[in-house]
């Protein structure tokens, strides 16, 4: 591997070096967390309003 390529690979994050199906599961997990976060904000407003 050339020095340029090694440097380039070193800059890649762990996520981008996962196989495609694992990366998709990761994105799905993030989307689920964002949706659940919105649900939590929606529900917790009850406490804020009470």
């Amino acid at each position: 591997m050339t020095e340029h390529a090694k440097n380039k690979n070193a800059g890649q994050g762990r996520f981008s070096q996962m196989p495609q199906h694992k990366r998709l599961l990761g994105v799905w997990w993030v989307l689920n967390m964002l949706v659940l976060g919105a649900l939590a904000a929606y529900v917790l407003r009850v406490l804020a309003l009470s």
């Binding site: 090694k6 380039k8 890649q12 981008s16 996962m18 196989p19 495609q20 990366r23």
Partner: peptide, 16 residues
């Protein structure tokens, strides 16, 4: 495809 993909990544090929 899974086996080859994992092997290539293991050998340092960027996933993109």
């Amino acid at each position: 495809m899974s086996g080859v993909e994992v092997a290539l990544i293991g050998l340092g090929v960027p996933s993109d």
